[in-house]
Simulated scan of single mutants.
Amino acid sequence: MAHLDEFLGALHQGVWEVVVPRSAVTEPLGPEWQRSAINVPSPGTIASFRKGQYHVHETEQDYRVHMDRYDPEKNPFMHLVDDAPLVLMLYDTMDTLVISARDRKSVDYRERIADQNLTWKMRMLTGAGLLLVAVLLILFAIDYTVAFFSILLPSLVCGFGILLLAAGYRLHARREHARKDLVLGTLIILIGLLMFPLWPLFVVLLLVVFTLWFSASAWVSLRRAIREKSAVPQGIWLTMGMGAGSLALAILAFLYPWELLKVLISLLAIVTFLGAVLALLDGYGMRNAASLMEEARAQAP
């Protein structure tokens, strides 16, 4: 019987990531491995778990485990600064979307379920919607930044709260534990409503947080690249690039805060655009698969 923990020794010897085939792990993850709800997107990940500094991404074929420098439960600020700087999060998100979009081309769509027609239409509709959102974000970044923070963002926060509240009511109707969702949904809706009149205060708070985050991330990344050099797990050039990117964003936040907000909205637009491309490619592939399935049924005796 083999537990996942038995394969993690290399992480304490300078190895950045350990890849363990699922077939080699004969025992399920123990209760000490807690499911992680919020993670930087990673290609092929179907679930993510944490145990202290250990962070595992579960895929269909293997477990990919790395070790964060800081436990997010014990030191969330340093985890955000050191293990998850914004530059790295954006890089991984875009990389994941591009890889996923590329992989969609090679999927055997003949194995998809019988409701292909409905599915591909929904995917195409989702892609078109995301594409529209990306265009709107670009417009907001160019000339309507105030409207983004005073109207769109509070509306999105309220919408998310309503969805969470609805999910809580649905769970409550099935007599399942829903108190957390109901309370959190209500709280998020209240925050969204407060953001409408108090959006300038929210923007100031956001800029302060971003400035501290970027500055701390730049300091940590550049110091590590200079001191540790070849011992940096992610590679010295990527680490220096992340540090330089974080430093540039910190300077922008301090000297040109409004321009920084436009840059961040533009980055969000790029990520949304990549998501739209992924959905459209997926929908197009499903449409072709549906046509093949219909042809096969028509030719069947």
Results as ranks from 00 to 15, higher is better:
T93N: 03
H79Y: 13
G275W: 01
T211K: 02
A290C: 12
I265D: 06
A290M: 07
A134C: 09
L274K: 00
S36F: 00
D108Q: 08
G159D: 07
A134S: 12
D108W: 04
G283K: 01
F149H: 05
V135Y: 14
V203G: 10
W237C: 08
D82L: 11
S36M: 00
D92Q: 10
D83Y: 09
E294Q: 13
S100M: 05
D82F: 07
A296M: 13
D83M: 12
A141L: 08
W120E: 03
L190E: 00
G283N: 06
I142L: 12
T126S: 11
L80K: 02
D115W: 09
R22G: 05
L165P: 10
R223K: 12
L201T: 09
D92C: 01
Q116W: 15
L278G: 08
A47L: 01
R69K: 07
S230E: 06
R287F: 09
A166P: 06
I265F: 04
G243S: 03
L132E: 01
L139W: 15
M1P: 00
V81M: 15
H177M: 11
E17C: 14
V20Q: 08
W213P: 03
S230K: 10
P154N: 03
E27N: 03
L184D: 15
E295F: 11
R102C: 10
A231Y: 12
V209T: 05
P197K: 00
D181T: 09
L8C: 07
L182A: 02
K262N: 11
V18L: 11
R227H: 08
A166N: 09
P233E: 13
Y284H: 14
L205P: 00
N75G: 08
S100H: 01
L97F: 04
L206M: 10
F140R: 08
W33F: 00
T119S: 09
V65Q: 05
F214T: 02
L198P: 05
V203C: 10
Y63R: 00
S150V: 10
S221Y: 11
E60H: 04
R110Q: 14
G9F: 04
M195E: 03
R110L: 15
I38V: 13
F202I: 02
L255V: 13
M293H: 14
G285P: 01
L29C: 02
R175Y: 15
S36T: 10
F254P: 03
L88F: 13
R297C: 03
I189Q: 12
L264V: 11
A10K: 09
S42A: 09
W219P: 15
L184M: 12
A225T: 07
G129Q: 13
T59Y: 02
R104Q: 13
Y284G: 11
V40P: 00
L125G: 10
V20N: 01
G245M: 07
Y256M: 15
V263S: 08
V65A: 02
L201K: 13
R297W: 04
L264E: 10
R174T: 12
F148H: 08
A231R: 15
Q116F: 01
L132W: 14
R123S: 14
P200T: 10
A298K: 15
V232I: 09
F77W: 15
V25P: 00
A24S: 13
V87T: 14
